[in-house]
Design a protein around this nucleic acid. Sequence first.
DNA 1: CCGAGGCTTCTGGTATACCATATACCATCG
DNA 2: CGATGGTATATGGTATACCAGAAGCCTCGG
Lengths: 254, 254
Amino acid sequence: MTEAGPRPSSPLDMPRLDTGSTFRDLAYAALKRAITAMDIYDHAHEIRLDERRLSEGLGVSRTPIREAMTLLEQEGFVRTLPRRGIYIVRKTKREIVEMITVWAALESMAARLVALNAADGDIAELRRLMDAFHDGPDGQTGGERLEEYSDANIAFHQAIIRMSGCTLLAELTENLFIHMRAIRKITIHQDNRAARSIVDHMRIIEALERRDPEEAARLAREHTLGLAAHVERHGDFLHTARDTNAPVTMTQTM
Amino acid sequence: MTEAGPRPSSPLDMPRLDTGSTFRDLAYAALKRAITAMDIYDHAHEIRLDERRLSEGLGVSRTPIREAMTLLEQEGFVRTLPRRGIYIVRKTKREIVEMITVWAALESMAARLVALNAADGDIAELRRLMDAFHDGPDGQTGGERLEEYSDANIAFHQAIIRMSGCTLLAELTENLFIHMRAIRKITIHQDNRAARSIVDHMRIIEALERRDPEEAARLAREHTLGLAAHVERHGDFLHTARDTNAPVTMTQTM
DNA sequence: CCGAGGCTTCTGGTATACCATATACCATCG
DNA sequence: CGATGGTATATGGTATACCAGAAGCCTCGG
């Protein structure tokens, strides 16, 4: 039994060919990875994606590229202006705040579910994950450890979502996190948020250990809404409105 | 600056041509409307969509049809099996429950925001919307009024989401509601849910009028989670697992 | 020197042809 | 008669050609 599940060990036990991976999916993955990797908010100018150039670069025709673009556009990562170009989207401050608000709602529900249903072992794992971090060189969190913390931070939140057992919660928050990652570097350096964050996380873990769904949900919500409020106050580096020369502001006003 | 604001009333105040509406978007809208209209869960057999037939029927080539399919697939309305066909998705019970759970999380947050930020007039409008309904012929809700209530029900929930002022909340719940609509007919006839629902709604409105965010959020959440629990218990008419003839049944017979 | 108007080029949108494989049917062979 | 392997057809995936509109450039007239 090399690979579990519905696969009766036949004489020729070959790994199944991935007939499911299409060029579209590959292009989608590649583009999303590229967009995630680059720090969008560092660039001052708009970043345009050229279908033909990408097509040539990836070695496939424009068709799968376009379908990948269709996906990315629906997810809010790019915006295509007919006969103008395809541009990587930089969210406005308002949109960021809305994303964080939605995230707060989803994670609060996730925390509730974890408190109700998760296995003790999983919750213990959560604590270990945090302990492992702030047991580093004394308690100070300044300096280069911020980068490291940034990852641990995301990992913590993703862990709670995952432990909720609700696949849909995970799917919906995934893209939110990608957008968050792009601006976390900026927010985390302000207001000593890192230190506060750790305290909040520990309180959430304690509520989960007490199996207190109300408190866990409340703490998770308020923790994340705190970030929303922070961005609302100090997020002026973000766009305040959509691109000026918008082709059809019409649809937004309707 | 010939054209500063949203729309300076020019001598020729014509409605702008909708250069933004592509065949893809039109096909997407048409398909989504069609899928929404048909009662998916009534049909016993799988429903397949033929790209070429649709292409011919809508009078456009396959390309925009395919891009629309890409969108619908990402939204979870169809599933495309390479070289097999494109099928309308019927959600499993588990998926339905997850959707309702997410909906509960989002609407709970929406209710909180409404209690905090909405204008008094909007909340009053909400009450009027509900009063207008259950002020009908005496208080009984049985019989054909259920259909009417079903719409009022959705309208109530959508109103709260909209009044939250959070665009993203509205966008995310939109598709959830479409899936809900498909199974509401079945759930609403069971367990006298309609009558209970009205009571719950009124309590939510009262909490909003008191500007009590905690209570509004709690009531909204519990109301919707109640539906989730109901489906969990009595939703056995739904699929319990993914399609049996998965793309590669092959391996099972080996 | 400057602006209007047209030309060139670039870019996404669409149509169409072709490809590879899943499926059903069918001929063949034991 | 049943199993097996070939084959026609159907269907989604991909490549490519062409279209229309937008941006920039360039010329030409004032």
